Every structure is written in structure tokens, then in C-alpha cells.
Simulated scan of single mutants.
Amino acid sequence: MTAAFVAPIVPADFPELKLLAWNRDVARPIPAEEVFELYERNWRFVDAEHLTTREAKLIRELTRVFGNGVLLIS
């Protein structure tokens, strides 16, 4: 794991993640690995065309670190 993912991620800081975390307090940080799993499980709800550059970079990094470079989506 890289140092960038030691700290939890706040869903409110990322528009699509905020939508995926609708049933949680979006201001409460979530562990990075859990965020990766949330993206993977719910990718069908992510509007990839509206990802911010920052959020796209986050997803790439999470995929590299926790998915060994693979985001399992269908």
C-alpha cells in the first residue's frame, strides 16, 4: 500500500463516490480499500463521463494498489 492510502477517503470530496455512499454519512472518512470495493461493486451506477480528473486519478490509484491493476466491473 502506498502512503497516499494510509488515510481514509472522505466520499463528499468525490462527486461519484458521494453518490455511491448515499446510505452513509458522506463526511465520514472510509478506509481506502473499502472505497475501492464500493467502486467495484457499484460501478454500474458511476457516470464515468462525469468523473472529475481528481476522482479518475483516485480510482486508478485504488485499482493499482488494491486491484493489482484490475477494476472488476461488468
Score class of each variant (00 low, 15 high):
Leu20Thr: 01
Ala3Ser: 05
Arg24Thr: 15
Thr63Asp: 07
Gly69Val: 05
Lys18Trp: 01
Pro29Ser: 15
Leu62Phe: 07
Arg28Tyr: 10
Ala56Phe: 12
Ala48Arg: 14
Phe14Gly: 00
Gly69Pro: 09
Arg41Thr: 14
Thr63Lys: 08
Leu62Ser: 06
Leu19Thr: 14
Ala4Trp: 00
Leu17Lys: 02
Met1Val: 03
Phe66Asp: 04
Phe5Gln: 03
Val6Ile: 11
Ile59Lys: 05
Asp13Ile: 01
Thr53Ala: 13
Ala7Trp: 00
Lys18Met: 13
Ile9Trp: 01
Ala12Phe: 00
Ala3Val: 03
Arg24Gln: 15
Asn42Ser: 13
Ala21Gln: 05
Ala4Ser: 04
Ala32Ile: 13
Leu38Glu: 07
Glu16Ile: 01
Ile59Pro: 09
Phe36Trp: 15
Ala32His: 04
Asp47Gly: 03
Pro15Trp: 00
Phe66Ser: 04
Glu49Leu: 11
Asn68Phe: 05
Leu19Asn: 14
Leu19Pro: 01
Val35Phe: 12
Ile9Phe: 02
Arg24Met: 14
Asp47Tyr: 09
Leu71Pro: 07
Phe36Cys: 11
Ala12Leu: 12
Ser74Val: 07
Ile9Lys: 03
Ala3Pro: 00
Val10Leu: 01
Pro31Lys: 14
Ala32Gln: 12
Leu17Ala: 00
Trp43Arg: 08
Leu71Glu: 05
Ala4Gln: 04
Phe36Glu: 10
